[in-house]
Design a protein around this nucleic acid. Structure first.
Lengths: 216, 216, 216, 216
DNA sequence: AATGAATGAGTATTCATTCAT
DNA sequence: TATGAATGAATACTCATTCAT
């Protein structure tokens, strides 16, 4: 009856309303304490309709995560200063994420805890997101490599994942309550500097990369 | 009244029986599908008695984790070849852990997922274990530093955490189903080599650390 | 979609089946020893469905109470002899209740004990029931007042609550095991006579209200 | 070994310490949320020792009740103005109790709810306390009778229980959350006035008992 | 008398998900 | 597509009380 385009748009709207509702509720009350019925009510749809758009409650978490993190990550790349030292660029990218979580600890925790152990059906979406993120980080590193800031033989892909690993471990330590955010930042900076050093030209010993770092 | 030694010993025995029972059951049926009553029954004690020794089911997981990992980690250090290149030593230490989990995926997953987000009351024990582990890794690195294998100015503590971060991220990626164990090994080796490179002497370019690595 | 009437009727039916099932079980085994699952099973519905109709086990007690007492109270007013002396009318009304409880001590006790201290959410229903009951008692008293049986200035509302207070205290004393039912009846009669006397015309001393009383 | 007197005293001390501890805890956290182990700890004795002095947790409630109410009731009689109108004297006696509960709603509620339905073994103590209380109220009434304030033929015993019934019903209504304390006071005054009127001399119509009452 | 380790019974309630309409 | 009533699985934990020392 309705033109395909309109029907499509209706679906799209409903989908967006659901994600927005879930996000609102997850932030307000946390993931666990939010029920799917609450999400449905907040989205203005029936309890059963929800499962036409998200097969699982976990799905909702993934959807919210992808929405939020996409924005945060996109934004972090848009505000990136390509002329800054590579270390600073990476810190900028990772800080954007931890800063975001700091604003929503209640949501950051389930993200960090659940998303690494998500149901198989939802892994492709997560994988795609992560791959895109990693690729973009690798591109930043690649540019630095081309500028001669790091060794010509350096593996940008490996550097991307390895700096991410440094970030992710500290992020979890922080969200898990083992370290403070300040500690996360200090440790991350040192760890990234170390990681980059492994890919840095050492021809002239004095030429070490300078950046606004804490001197230990 | 009763000789302190005896009562103490009884408690100790019971504690050990509980952890052993929990371990057995967790391995056999997984953590989630094991009920506390099953653990109590397997340990030969009353359902309530269990909670005199573990305030929470999560406690049981932590107890089993500490027991298992302590053994695995202790063993990994005992079988360490102090004369091997540092990279190989570290791979030996981390491989011991992933090899252990490979034998018990059902238990490794909850370990990796839950233990970073454990209840506050159980964090000190986790922290202490991690601190001890990190210290021992740092000592290994420190020895390498004294042998002149890595830079005299290198920070052993930072290297320990940073190599661990590399390991942990891949471990989770593997347990979460994102990468295979083979991939974990390959990536970890490259990442560790990169990390160590940042702390490696570069005076004589040809003197690069040799170890049995995969040439990509 | 479905005709409102049908869906409504279904819900109504289910509600009634639940209350009937609860009543049956409470009488047979007592309130405490009846589990909600038993009630659900007896009503032929799922364990969870029960809580769509009664948010709490306490709710079930209130529902059964309102059902039973409504009947008993309604019946007590229908069988009331409006021509009898006021004291006898009141005794008739209150005796109906204690006689009912005598048939189900197992249920009377939790009624008397719990319903005065019910969760806030259930108080309005209780209040409404009590208000209706008190109003009807007051009407009986009011009629007696208009017949000149009690003082023209008497407050029917106050007399209703005050006679009820006399009844309720003895009811609890009986259900609590402090007095026998016989004692309850004797004491109640005397107490009601006393209460009414306070509102009785004394112009002609000899005109005291006559009713079939126990002479102590 | 120890002289009987000392042993007795020790027991007495322990008993008192237990009741004091229970009272403290019940007031602070409420009856239900207080565990017997907490009471034992607070009293500085072993968990098992407690049950040498109170066979049941309910026992503790009764003990605390008797201690508290004995004091309150004793005090209410000591501060009684024997020259005041009977109505005022009774209000004084009952107000003392509700005023006491107002200071400890958390404790008043279980008192009012549980004590009427206490285990058989504890009923004699309750009965004795109530009997003593009633007797003393009856004595007050009896004195008024002898002063000619109420009818020579009035039954002091019946008046005592009946006024108490009026009080108790309103006390429960208040503690159960059905009426406010102000309402309790207003209703009680009216109800007592009514009850006393039933036993008041009416020879000279104008001679009605005067007391500081609210005129409706 | 005192202890405190051991016991084990006992159950309401939530909520993701389904499916008849 | 949408609905929302119906489902039912699923279990950790508390705590009064006991009893061997």
């Amino acid at each position: 009856m309705a033109p395909g385009g309109l029907r499509e748009r209706n679906k799209r709207d409903k989908h967006d309303r659901i994600v927005a509702a879930a996000r609102r509720l997850f932030r307000r009350q946390g993931f666990e304490r939010t029920t799917t019925q609450q999400v449905a009510a907040e989205a203005g749809i029936g309890a059963g309709t929800l499962f036409l758009y998200a097969r699982t409650k976990e799905d909702l978490l993934v959807m919210v995560f992808l929405l939020e993190l996409s924005r945060v990550v996109d934004d972090s790349f848009e505000t990136l200063d390509g002329a800054a030292p590579l270390l600073d660029q990476l810190l900028h990218l990772y800080d954007a994420v931890s800063r975001h979580h700091a604003r929503n600890l209640a949501l950051g925790r389930p993200f960090a805890k659940e998303l690494m152990f998500v149901h198989e059906a939802r892994r492709p979406a997560m994988r795609a997101f992560m791959a895109g993120w990693m690729r973009r980080i690798a591109e930043v590193i690649e540019r630095a490599r081309q500028h001669g800031e790091i060794d010509a033989g350096a593996d940008a892909r490996l550097l991307a994942t390895s700096t991410f690993a440094q970030f992710f471990f500290r992020l979890q330590s922080w969200l898990g309550g083992y370290i403070t955010r300040a500690r996360l930042e200090a440790e991350l900076r040192d760890a990234l500097r170390l990681t980059l050093a492994g890919a840095t030209l050492h021809r002239r010993p004095g030429r070490r990369n300078r950046s606004k770092t804490t001197k230990r």
